[in-house]
């Protein structure tokens, strides 16, 4: 095992459901991600990308296999410890945003800071900066219901970035964005990766978005089909 390996997956299986209705979404994934990498995960719809991301983000547990994050056996952690790992090390951008309803954009972005115990003033300031960096400075009072799909997605991005997590998982972060906003978001992700050394794993369907990453992994039918470095 590489000493710089941040994420190490071995024989990861994920089976949804039970008995006849069960479905094997991941069929034995082996994967190493190094600290500081920017990885794009691609593949057809239903191939298991989100399933993989959820496992990596400690939101779900594999049916079998082992997952080590910074050398820690994640499956040996209890619920609270996994929560704390998510709180202090991981950031997650959901395919479906998952913002708190009836809660203003800025308060949504503040949420992870609140659980980190950061004071009110500092929280507000950091949240505003994050919203500003995704071009939503003028929408901080709006609730998700008052925002377009792309704007909600950007709030979700700001919420994941605001804590400057060691590792950022992004499930189709530009799925709802036009090409200009997409470029802006990709630039800020690249900056986080290069300037702060944040490791980024990003699911995308778009070839030109994947070009921002240094490495492309193709998932097909629950297995890794290709794994290549960009040039």
């Amino acid at each position: 095992m590489n000493t710089k390996s941040l994420i190490h997956l071995e024989g990861i299986h994920k089976i949804y459901g039970e008995g006849d209705a069960s479905f094997e979404a991941l069929k034995g994934i082996n994967l190493d991600i190094l600290s500081g990498e920017f990885v794009a995960i691609m593949g057809p719809s239903g191939s298991g990308k989100s399933t993989l991301m959820n496992l990596l983000g400690c939101l779900d547990r594999p049916s079998s296999g082992s997952y080590r994050y910074e050398g820690i056996h994640v499956e040996s952690l209890d619920k609270t410890q996994r929560s704390l790992l998510r709180r202090y090390a991981l950031g997650f951008i959901f395919q479906g945003f998952n913002l708190l309803a009836r809660t203003s954009a800025v308060e949504n972005v503040e949420l992870p800071l609140l659980y980190r115990g950061i004071g009110r003033r500092k929280r507000r300031q950091l949240a505003r900066e994050a919203l500003d960096s995704v071009g939503l400075a003028d929408k901080e009072r709006n609730t998700p219901g008052e925002l377009s799909g792309g704007q909600q997605q950007r709030v979700a991005i700001a919420r994941a970035m605001v804590t400057q997590p060691r590792t950022l998982f992004a499930d189709e972060p530009t799925g709802n964005l036009d090409s200009k906003t997409t470029d802006e978001i990709m630039l800020s992700l690249t900056r986080l990766n290069q300037e702060q050394g944040i490791t980024i794993l990003m699911v995308t369907h778009e070839e030109d978005v994947a070009q921002f990453a240094g490495r492309q992994i193709h998932v097909l039918d629950g297995l890794i089909a290709h794994d290549q470095q960009n040039h």
């Binding site: 619920k79 704390l84 708190l100 659980y115």
Partner: peptide, 19 residues
């Protein structure tokens, strides 16, 4: 339903079950 989703979001973001 709404509250369960809220709890899911809070947990995902790093809140512990106790909090």
């Amino acid at each position: 339903t709404e509250r369960t989703r809220e709890i899911g979001i809070r947990l995902a973001i790093g809140a512990t079950a106790k909090e």
